[in-house]
């Protein structure tokens, strides 16, 4: 019938890439993970299309988190840059990235964060950037601190930055976390270690890059994000 039948669909997710819903080492999953197997839904127009929200919906571009409310945030300045690609290596342009993180002391600007560490009046810890034609994005921030959480005795989250991405379709939606190289908390973190595949886990760790590092100003980290690729398979097959 219509040419929509020949739209490409998104490839299957390789086994071990995403965590299992039931990952009991992360205690919040125990009452929140579905107990029944998911039903496989062959993608339709609903799943291959998806939201492309503009600034009026998600807010304006904000690529520098280091200065706000009339002053400079405390902590180690960082530049984070990378490309958003799909599994076929194609750049994903015009992808909105929403980003949030704790401050240098490991405290979120959020009412439910009760960690006894100082808030920074000059750090809100969130922003938004959009990828360029080549899929590249860049923002500058403060290196987030580690913080304790109640998951188990002496539990600490490794330093991390949250990313939320709208790719081209509902099927490509992704929320993830970027970690920092050499963090001694990584082997102890049940959220990071919920990813079964070791290579996939390692891809969430950014790399330090001296060429991104800006002399006399900020350390540079590189973090590429890869969304699902496309099959050429027509939808009716």
């Amino acid at each position: 019938m219509s040419e929509t039948d020949n739209s490409e669909i998104y490839s299957d997710v390789p086994a071990g890439t995403h965590p299992a819903y039931a990952s009991p080492a992360y205690k919040s999953t125990i009452l929140r993970a579905p107990s029944r197997p998911l039903i496989r839904l062959p993608q339709t127009l609903t799943e291959v299309t998806g939201p492309r929200p503009g600034a009026e919906t998600v807010g304006p571009t904000l690529a520098d988190f280091t200065k706000c409310h009339g002053g400079e945030a405390v902590g180690e300045r960082i530049i984070v840059t990378g490309r958003v690609l799909d599994e076929d290596g194609r750049a994903v342009p015009n992808a909105v990235l929403e980003i949030w993180q704790a401050n240098a002391a490991g405290r979120y600007n959020h009412p439910v964060d009760r960690h006894d560490a100082p808030l920074d009046p000059h750090f809100d810890g969130s922003g938004r950037v959009t990828t360029a034609e080549d899929g590249a994005y860049r923002f500058q921030s403060i290196k987030p601190g580690a913080y304790p959480w109640k998951n188990h005795h002496n539990a600490w989250r490794p330093n991390h930055i949250h990313f939320s991405l709208f790719g081209p379709g509902v099927a490509t939606r992704l929320i993830t976390q970027m970690y920092f190289p050499g963090d001694p908390l990584l082997p102890l973190d049940p959220i990071y270690n919920s990813i079964p595949d070791a290579a996939a886990r390692a891809r969430l760790v950014s790399t330090f890059d001296i060429d991104v590092t800006q002399p006399e100003y900020a350390l540079g980290y590189r973090f590429d994000i890869v969304l699902r690729g496309r099959h050429a398979t027509p939808m009716e097959q």
């Binding site: 390789p14 965590p19 949250h162 959220i191 886990r201 891809r203």
Partner: peptide, 11 residues
């Protein structure tokens, strides 16, 4: 081929 980025919780 680049490897797919894993999901993590929204927290």
């Amino acid at each position: 081929m680049p490897g797919l980025t894993s999901s993590q919780t929204v927290g």
